[in-house]
Nucleic acid binder design. Structure first.
Lengths: 191, 191
DNA sequence: GGTCGTATAGTCGGTTCCGACTAATAGGGA
DNA sequence: TCCCTATTAGTCGGAACCGACTATACGACC
């Protein structure tokens, strides 16, 4: 199997939207924002138009009409193609099934935690824990009032996941800070 | 405060190495690999040389000698500067203290989980769970025999963290798959 | 009725990142 | 001795990504 032609996950988001109905690029971005998907996908005007072009080049989507309002440049409305629908599902399936290596900044930093010295490391971890606690609260609020409005849980399922992941990170940060403070995580000298 | 001049975490890894002793670029890469840091940092020959150049341009590191062996191109050996040492610690501190938005592929996929349909979604989550279980085992082995060799825990602390994160992800995947199978996570039709 | 903020819609140039490719040497075996 | 492979060391062109900037329309407010 040749590797996927497009790897940018923003493309996944756009395809997913176009499966609902045709849209023009700016509308895709604002719809994603409305649905709070801008925490899940990095939406940047530059990347947006690049990605749309790339999707079109590979025929996963295609222009269906160009609307002109006033005397300003035309907006091009895109729809998904049959190929696009197939690629979308296959890609999704693969992303869920198979963990791939990613390189989060926090892991990078933790791998040099020693360089901060025990005091400062414990401080920093505790501060992180506080930030994470706030984010978890935010997620809980968002979940509560979205479900309160009658939306199905599945629409916010990724928020449930990140909430869970943050909680795990929070637990680790607190536990590790405590171990440092108690001396049960010994600190070698050569740092 | 102006934003950091360099954001690539590979730069953090390189700086960290150069705090130990001066090295030439290729040696940095192979040392990182020896220490299993290639799962934490994305090491790519292109990025490596670009990053070294960028570090040098900003005077976080500087060339200390050029060694010539045989009649082949010179290898440039770099050392950290005082500025580099300061930036390293400040950057590290910030990365640990403050969570930043990242956009992992799995979260992207989960946010469109509905499109897979309940059957396939549960299948995919269960397969992911199996992959994660394997990785966790691998991490346990690595931890056991590194500590067995007398290395301090702190040298593998990031492995402890990712192990913890994977375990949380595994739990979520299994639980969510079970909820789908049992019907307690209802599936709307419009997917 | 001017102007100030906000929403709409997108452009463009630069940096960063990537990975296939090049090339020389050392070591080991037939 | 010759060849094959692994290791050392790095180059280069293109793709991806970013974000500051441009520009119009619309409503609100003084």
């Amino acid at each position: 199997m040749p590797p996927r032609k497009i790897r940018n996950t923003l493309a996944l988001a756009l395809l997913g939207l176009l499966l609902e109905r045709p849209m023009h690029p700016y509308e895709m971005a604002s719809t994603l924002r409305e649905r709070y998907k801008d925490t899940t996908f990095k939406i940047n005007p530059g990347s947006l138009y690049d990605t749309v072009e790339s999707l079109a080049k590979h025929r996963w989507i295609e222009p269906v009409e160009t609307v002109r309002e006033g005397n300003r440049p035309e907006r091009t409305v895109y729809a998904h193609t049959e190929l696009g629908r197939q690629e979308f599902v296959a890609w999704l399936d693969e992303l869920v099934r198979t963990p791939v290596a990613e390189y989060p900044k926090f892991v990078a930093a933790v791998s040099y935690l020693g360089a901060l010295g025990p005091e400062r490391a414990a401080d920093a971890l505790e501060e992180r824990a506080r930030h994470l606690a706030e984010r978890i609260e935010g997620a809980d609020t968002a979940l509560a009032d979205t479900v309160g409005k009658g939306a199905p849980r599945l629409f916010m399922i990724e928020v449930e996941f990140v909430r869970h992941a943050w909680q795990a990170e929070l637990d680790w940060a607190r536990r590790t800070a405590a171990e440092i403070r108690s001396g049960s995580l010994p600190w070698p000298d050569n740092f």
